[in-house]
């Protein structure tokens, strides 16, 4: 990571949420700036150039989506959206509009910090071009296309590797079904998620210790998959 401390801009109209997010992220080593409206958030984002933005969708003056689109018009800064349960379509749309990830209320601070970190890593990774992705015992070498689990080398089919590759380049971040299908099959399969489901099942059998209780390849129901980051 290029900087010793990263700055976070928290855009949320609820002071109590801002309070714990601010305190929590400071404990995780971030400097935190807060904004209580979309307008203030946008001007603060332009002035302070934060490293990450945490954006709540329910703002009083403008919708979170508008804020997201405005920021994306001039910046690729990582954006984590605070969403609510059972709004899968909205989550998918936000991701499509350029949000890096979302987190569902209620959430713990460790979870949010992990999302921020993952988003920051991915943002800087494109500059670093670090070809090795590691999560726990799983190591993916993006250049040599080799996958190892602990000491053992894992042999994957082309599509299985493609799936793992896309998830590894987004380590810790959710990737939508449509994005995965497009990356793996090269064309949109429409709503035919079943092929992806079967492929995930096969990949899990090769990289997970217990495929029924996956630790790496996590399902985000209705949205997509995430390769969980482990120390």
């Amino acid at each position: 990571m290029p900087k010793s401390t990263n700055s976070v801009l928290v855009i949320d109209d609820e002071p109590q949420i801002r309070r714990f997010v601010g305190a929590g992220l400071e404990l995780h080593g971030y400097t935190v700036k807060e904004a209580d409206t979309g307008a203030v958030g946008l001007s603060t984002a332009a002035h302070m150039q934060p490293d990450v933005i945490v954006l709540d969708l329910g703002l009083p003056d403008m919708s979170g989506i508008e804020v997201l689109e405005s920021v994306r018009a001039w910046s690729n800064v990582p954006i984590i959206v605070l969403s609510i349960e059972s709004a899968e379509e909205q989550k998918v749309m936000l991701l499509k509009l350029g949000a890096d990830d979302y987190i569902v209320k209620p959430f713990g601070i460790a979870e949010l910090a992990a999302r921020c970190e993952a988003a920051l890593r991915r943002y800087h990774k494109s500059a670093d071009k670090n070809p090795i992705v590691q999560t726990g015992a799983l190591v993916v070498d993006l250049v040599s296309r080799s996958v190892t689990l602990g000491e053992e080398r894992v042999t994957l089919t082309r599509k299985e590797y493609r799936l793992l590759h896309v998830l590894a380049t987004h380590l810790g971040l959710v990737v939508t079904h449509q994005q995965l299908i497009k990356e793996i099959w090269g064309r949109a399969l429409g709503d035919n998620v079943q092929y992806l489901r079967m492929l995930v099942r096969k990949l899990r059998q090769k990289i997970e210790v217990d495929p029924n209780q996956p630790k790496f390849l996590i399902t985000e129901s209705g949205v997509g998959y995430r390769l969980e980051r482990h120390k």
Partner: peptide, 9 residues
């Protein structure tokens, strides 16, 4: 949500 978040902090 803020109570749960605060306890996690």
């Amino acid at each position: 949500a803020s109570i749960l978040g605060s306890t996690s902090v």
